[in-house]
């Protein structure tokens, strides 16, 4: 399925150089030369895959459906990975030990976003943060809400805010966002290893 686009690409200025696409000689095909030329086409492509996320992600998502966050430990370094992908990227060995993590976390760093990249009506600006979940050793990204955006700081303690139990699925979307949990900030020195 293709269709031509109506928008004519803007002409560009080619810098002085030694080669550009040569002019074509259409003298033998005047009836084609005399009509408007096709300059571009649309090529619609659709492929469908039967996607499987693998064993470790399945374990993680089955747990998240039960409102649990589960990481997996590297047997060599002891570091806990979340979300787990089945292999420790440091040792190259399978992560077979599952570790129950807390449902709270700490802001490691963040940015304030002024465009809606989420596709649903967010308040703008909003805060996207690197959050170190309690018990894990690698931060994940998450939205921070229920606090003015200009009050978010590294070290801020957060709780995860979940969808209703009836809406829980095997999906990251179960966590709607993160919000301050009221605990004192974690000193920056304790977060130095996580950025």
């Amino acid at each position: 399925m293709t269709d031509t686009t109506s928008s004519e690409p803007a002409p560009i200025e080619i810098p002085e150089g030694v080669w550009s696409q040569p002019e074509v000689d259409m003298s033998a095909i005047e009836e084609i030369a005399s009509v408007e030329s096709v300059r571009s086409v649309r090529a619609f492509a659709s492929l469908t895959y039967d996607y499987t996320p693998g064993l470790a992600t399945t374990r993680f998502l089955r747990a998240i459906k039960e409102k649990r966050l589960v990481g997996e430990r590297c047997s060599e370094t002891g570091k806990v990975y979340v979300p787990p992908r089945g292999v420790s990227p440091v040792s190259g060995m399978p992560t077979t030990e599952q570790v129950d993590l807390g449902l709270d976390g700490t802001v490691v760093s963040f940015c304030v976003v002024n465009l809606d990249f989420t596709g649903n009506a967010q308040e703008i600006p909003y805060v996207s943060a690197l959050i170190l979940v309690d018990g894990s050793d690698i931060p994940i990204y998450g939205l921070v809400r229920e606090i003015p955006y200009n009050e978010v700081q590294p070290g801020l303690r957060l709780k995860s805010v979940w969808v209703e139990d009836s809406e829980m699925t095997t999906s990251f979307e179960n966590i709607k966002w993160w919000a301050p949990n009221g605990e004192p900030d974690v000193p920056a020195s304790e977060l130095a290893d996580y950025v």
């Binding site: 979300p83 490691v108 976003v113 990249f117 996207s128 943060a129």
Partner: peptide, 22 residues
């Protein structure tokens, strides 16, 4: 939007901006 993976909520710059802030 890969199934079962966390969706980016902040676009490409949103990945790097926290490290720049750091």
């Amino acid at each position: 939007n890969m199934p079962f993976q966390q969706q980016l909520v902040a676009g490409a710059g949103g990945y790097f901006a926290p490290y720049i802030r750091q």
